[in-house]
Amino acid sequence: MEVTVKLFAYFRDGRFKEAASTLSDEETTPRNVIESLAIDMDDVGVIMVNNRHAAADYRLHNNDVLAIFPRIGGG
C-alpha cells in the first residue's frame, strides 16, 4: 500500500517535508508510520488523513495522504 506522508514544523528536521511511503500489510496505521520515523508519539499533536483529523490507530488505505504535526498553536 502506498501513502503520501507529510511532516511539519520540527518533525522535518533530519527527515523530509513530503515523501511516498510503502506500507506492509501489517503496518497500516499512522502510529506505525510515526514509529518507523522515530518520532515520539508524545510529541505528536495532530494527525490528519486526507484533510480530516484521524486517530493514531486509524486504518490507512492506498493513496491516503497522511499529515503529522507536533503540538503547535498560534492565532
Binding site: F8, Y10, G45, M48, H53, R71, I72, G73, G74, G75
Partner: peptide
C-alpha cells in the same frame, strides 16, 4: 510544548495546518 513551538515558528506555524485542514 505549544509555547515552545510558538517561540520557534511564531504564530505563522498555523499556515500549513490550517491549509491541511
Amino acid at each position: 510544548p505549544i509555547s515552545q513551538a510558538l517561540g520557534q515558528y511564531g504564530t505563522n506555524v498555523l499556515v500549513n495546518i490550517i491549509n491541511e485542514s
